[in-house]
């Protein structure tokens, strides 16, 4: 009994610490040009995790539309979007965070999905089930996953 209580309060503290620094999807502030200057979590992104998110179908699945030479291990890269080779060299971290969070703020009407957005959809579904979304629809990527992807994109320095 004692251990359960202790454990619960420790978890409680950790959870509220994470939430305290995490910006909710509806609260993200974009510059006029579509950049997001502040980190969504305050915790540095992990580029290795970012690479994994970009090739995982149920997560970013970025390679469905973009070719990335550094991710050549994952088969089949699409050609709907531009190649991302060198993108960390010519785009700033704030631009990349803005593009991954909601690319439509920078590229009006783009086909690129918004990865950290939870409202304003037409017939939102529950992931790929075809069923209606739950009321508390989660963003496609969590705040930290966005930071991980941005950290990976920043490593793409040469084209």
């Amino acid at each position: 009994m004692k251990t359960t209580v202790a454990l619960a309060s420790v978890i409680g503290i950790v959870a509220s610490a994470v939430l305290a620094d995490t910006t909710a999807p509806d609260d993200v502030s974009f510059t006029e040009y579509g950049e997001v200057e502040a980190s969504l979590t305050g915790t540095a992104g992990d580029p290795a995790k970012g690479a994994e998110i970009m090739t995982t179908r149920s997560k970013g699945n970025c390679v469905a539309c973009h070719a990335v030479t550094a991710l050549a291990d994952a088969p089949f890269h699409g050609e709907v979007g531009p190649t991302l080779d060198g993108v960390g060299g010519y785009r700033s971290e704030a631009e990349l965070r803005g593009i991954v969070t909601n690319a439509k703020k920078m590229f009006d009407g783009t086909v690129m999905p918004a990865f950290y957005k939870t409202s304003g959809f037409i017939r939102p579904g529950d992931a790929y089930t075809g069923k209606a979304a739950p009321d508390d629809l989660p963003p496609i990527l969590s705040a930290q996953e966005v930071e991980d992807v941005v950290a990976f994109l920043m490593t793409l320095q040469d084209s």
Binding site: D46, P47, A48, A51, A67, V68, T69, A70, L71, A72, D73, P75, F76, H77, G78, E79, A151, F152, T155
Partner: peptide, 18 residues
């Protein structure tokens, strides 16, 4: 980590552009 990752990618097969 990023350097290790890039090195790994260089070893991998060249990207097949469809």
């Amino acid at each position: 980590k990023a350097i290790a990752l890039t090195a790994l990618a260089l070893l991998a097969a060249p990207l097949v552009v469809q």
